[in-house]
Structures are given as C-alpha cells and as structure tokens.
Design a protein around this nucleic acid. Sequence first.
DNA 1: TTAGATGCAAAGACTTTGCGCACTT
DNA 2: AAGTGCGCAAAGTCTTTGCATCTAA
Lengths: 163, 163
Amino acid sequence: MHTLAFQWRTYSEGMADPQNSVDEILSTVRGGARRVTVAKRTVAEVLVEASGHLTVDEVTLAVQDRRPDVSPSTVYRILEEFEELKIVVHTHLGQSAAVYHLSGAVHGHLTCEVCNYTMQIPAAHFDVLGKDLQKTYGFLLDRHHVAISGTCAHCQSVRRHNT
Amino acid sequence: MHTLAFQWRTYSEGMADPQNSVDEILSTVRGGARRVTVAKRTVAEVLVEASGHLTVDEVTLAVQDRRPDVSPSTVYRILEEFEELKIVVHTHLGQSAAVYHLSGAVHGHLTCEVCNYTMQIPAAHFDVLGKDLQKTYGFLLDRHHVAISGTCAHCQSVRRHNT
DNA sequence: TTAGATGCAAAGACTTTGCGCACTT
DNA sequence: AAGTGCGCAAAGTCTTTGCATCTAA
C-alpha cells in the first residue's frame, strides 16, 4: 500500500455539520444503557479528532498512545457497541480491514485503487442513483455504506505521465 | 447469514452477452504465458457454470466436487492469476470473504444487508454517477468494483409487515 | 527437459470469544 | 453492592507462503 504525501481535501461544502462531540457520543452511550468508561471516552476522542475513517488497528494505536493499557479486543468491542448505537458506521473499502468513522458526517466514500486514499463526499451525489435503483429494482440504497472504487485524479495523471 | 428461498432475477436485458466460455478463459491463460492445468480448467468450468459471484470457499467446494485433490491454496492462486489476466474480478461485498466472478458479464452489485443476497445490474445505472464524480472530483469510477449496500424490495416489505 | 504449478502444512492478518478481575453506576 | 466492561490469551476465519514434488509444454 502506498503512503500518500498529497491529500485530497475533503469536500464538505453543503454537508450538514456533524456536531459529533465526545460528550454527545458519551451521552448516546448512556442513553443506550451502557456504561461510560475510560476506554470508551478515549475511543470517542480519537474518532472525533480523526475526522476521516480509521481501521481498527489505527484506532487502537491512537487510543494506546494515550492509554497504553487498552487492549485491541476492547477497541473491537467498543466499536461494535458504537455501531449498534449508530455512533459509527464501518465499511470494507479495499481488500483488507474494515474502516470505521462517525456516522454523523459521512455520506459516501470514493477510494482510489492506486494510492488507496479515500475521500468522503456528500450524499447528494447518490440521490439520482438512489432513486433509480429504488424505482428499477425496489432497492433502498444505504447511504452510510456507499463505497465506490476507482482512480483519483492524481493517480490518473501520474498514469498518463508514465505511459 | 441467511439462506434465501426467494431469488431475485438477474436483470440482464441490455447487457452485452459475456461469451465467457471455458475455452476462451483457457486461451487467455495460454496467451498470458501460463500453463493450462486440470485445476485451472475446473475453476474455469465452475466460474462459467455459476453465473453469479462466488466466495473462494464456494469455488473450492465446487471444484473439489469434481477434483477432490485440488487444494484451497491452489484455488486462491488460480483466482489471483485469473484476476491478473482480467478473467475475473473480485469484490468485498458484506463484511466477510471476497467474492469472485467472471469479468465479462458484470457491472455492478446491489447487496441486501438483511438477506445478504446480491444482484447484478447493468453498468448504465452508474453512468450519471460516474460522470458526476469525474466532473466534480476527477474521480474515475471502476465499473467492475461498484458494490452498493442497501435493502432489497423483499426485505423492505418484510420489515414493514413486522413493524 | 525444465520452469511453472500444485499439495500440504505452517504462518499471517484480522476478528471474536471465554473467563475472572476491575470499575461504573 | 451489583453487574457491566475490561485485559489477556486462546480460538476462529480468511488468505498467503515455503518447499518438495509433479507436470505441461
């Protein structure tokens, strides 16, 4: 997998502001009759601060950076709980591990198959497709899980230069 | 995972006929300077006969049904080779294992998150989205890897009845 | 003949689970 | 005090790899 120096900017114009604060997450946890723990608070902080998507491993490393005693299995369990509570969603982007992110802000993913970078885009892009699929097949598109593979502008131009 | 009695029909109207015969696959293998073996022929047969997508495990079982001596690792290697040769493509649909299918016929996937059934649909549905993404983000959509999650018509009506 | 393909088994990557102690409420 | 949540370690699933043997060309 490539590491990417250049980063796409996240197109957030027109997106509702997520308002995903740590406190908000934790009160959702309380509302779900679960307990608020240090590990959960730390996972919440990591998710809020990393605006993008993270693999479980990345979440774990970031959490352990602050709380070295939190185990990977706990992170798995917390993310599973957060998903039940609709705090996060996860998607399988490339071939490998699942990526998680806060559900509030996210609409769709575009993943570049060359450099592996993923950008998030507003849901509006899927309106037409969603209506089309609904009408044609009765299929109700899940906006939280839309993940499109392809080639980003940068890698397309690199390919052109090398060919 | 649920097993589904009812099956969606595959919407193939308007799709170019794949012409994916076993012979065609094997000549692609020869063209790629690879050898044609019993295992490869059997994998090719399985892929041609199963018009839909299959997990590696399903391919392996179907192959072993005819050639019990073919090992799973060989199936992985053959599918990897077939993918290099553009004979098949694979996608990660749900959470679990990758699914493979012949590249000729396939355009996009709609996977139901409830019953887990996947239907294939013509590429035309992604034309508008593809142009939009190209124009807005310079992103070139990969038609072979489009996988959309959501809820199928059947499971939507079931949910309505149960709620 | 001989380089590529395979079978077997082990290793790897990612994720889940059982159990007893710790911590939240 | 009561019961959820956690760390640890083991197990599970899916996939890859090393190596000796076999086989297509």
